[in-house]
């Protein structure tokens, strides 16, 4: 068990106090270097990001129809949210989507990445095949393709027909439409899979070798080597996929033709926001909605970072 023992030693060493090299001189040198390294980012923050973000915050307190100048209306937009039933529905839909699709997608991505990481025949072929769906992105073709599978006369129903079952039109039935979007999201697990693969590449092979010499089984290796060493990447995927899922827009937009239908069953938060802003010329309210979304996402991310202290392992 020597490799695992070594790992545990490393693990505990990270929990300790920062090393002594963190002297004042080093910190000063670090700050100078940080200014240099962050220069492009600071410039981008100031010149590109800050203005529009601030404007959207101010617009959240206005009535703004895009064509005429915005007018201050205090907290009206936020009061309106309390009684906006379509917003409440959008929140329900979005939360369901995030809580179901993110774990499913990450599990698929990690599972396939592990399977494909081990040297096997046809590895490159499978990896490419599994990634191909993600390449389609938000192409208009997706809507049509999805109907070929989940439509009333799509592949699934043809298959069910063989057993004499008459399926519904899965995309257009309010009871099942959201599920098809979750499947669509899982189907494009290629992106997190690639990130996992890149992360697995960084795990020293010798740990596994030592562990298997010590007689550790696959499961033990996974739990004691892969998970801790991959944890920064798992964490990254988790944080980013949650953010992305909350902002999920394109797939619902493309599949439902921009409506969030049938009867609002795929009305994601950002889709609703977009419809208010551009469809109904209600950009003030849309901006307020955006900031509520920011608070929700930020809360989720903060919880994630807080929890990460318990399970994410860094070598610093």
């Amino acid at each position: 068990m020597s490799a695992i023992g070594e790992l545990q030693r490393l693990n505990t060493s990270t929990g300790g106090p920062p090393r002594k090299r963190d002297t004042r001189a080093a910190r000063k040198r670090d700050t100078r270097a940080a200014l240099l390294f962050l220069l492009p980012w600071f410039a981008g923050l100031l010149l590109i990001t800050a203005g529009p973000v601030a404007a959207s915050l101010v617009l959240g307190f206005t009535d703004y129809n895009l064509i005429q100048p915005p007018e201050f209306n205090g907290l009206e937009n936020f009061e309106r949210m309390l009684s906006d039933e379509r917003l409440h529905n959008a929140l329900r839909v979005t939360f369901t989507y995030v809580l179901v699709s993110v774990p499913l997608q990450l599990a698929c991505a990690l599972g396939l990445a592990l399977l494909l990481d081990r040297g096997m025949r046809g590895l490159a072929f499978y990896r490419s095949a599994f990634y191909l769906p993600s390449l389609l992105g938000s192409s208009v073709a997706i809507a049509v393709l999805w109907r070929q599978i989940f439509g009333a006369e799509g592949l699934i129903n043809q298959f069910l027909n063989v057993f004499g079952i008459q399926g519904t039109g899965w995309i257009s039935d309010p009871d099942t439409a959201l599920s098809t979007l979750i499947v669509l999201n899982v189907w494009t697990f290629g992106a997190p899979m690639v990130i996992f693969l890149a992360g697995l590449r960084q795990i020293p092979v010798m740990y596994y070798e030592a562990a298997s010499i010590d007689g550790a089984g696959r499961w033990t290796q996974f739990r004691r080597i892969t998970v801790p060493l991959l944890s920064p990447i798992i964490f990254f995927n988790l944080v980013l996929q949650i953010i992305h899922a909350f902002q999920s827009f394109t797939q619902a937009f493309v599949v439902s033709g921009g409506t969030g239908g049938p009867s609002d069953s795929t009305m994601f938060y950002t889709l609703y926001l977009y419809q208010r802003g551009f469809g109904s010329f209600d950009m003030g309210y849309a901006s307020a909605l955006a900031w509520l979304l920011l608070l929700i996402i930020a809360a989720f991310t903060a919880v994630n970072f807080w929890a990460a202290k318990r399970w994410v392992f860094y070598d610093d």
């Binding site: 963190d22 670090d30 700050t31 962050l38 404007a55 617009l59 827009f249 900031w291 920011l294």
Partner: peptide
């Protein structure tokens, strides 16, 4: 990842925060 500087955590949070606003409300001012 590697440097210790003042306000690092806050800057990092701001950086993450910048991807949390949907593009549809940023696009007009931008």
């Amino acid at each position: 990842a590697r440097l210790e500087f003042t306000g690092k955590k806050i800057w990092f949070a701001i950086m993450l925060g910048t991807i949390m606003l949907p593009i549809h409300v940023i696009i007009v001012p931008q």
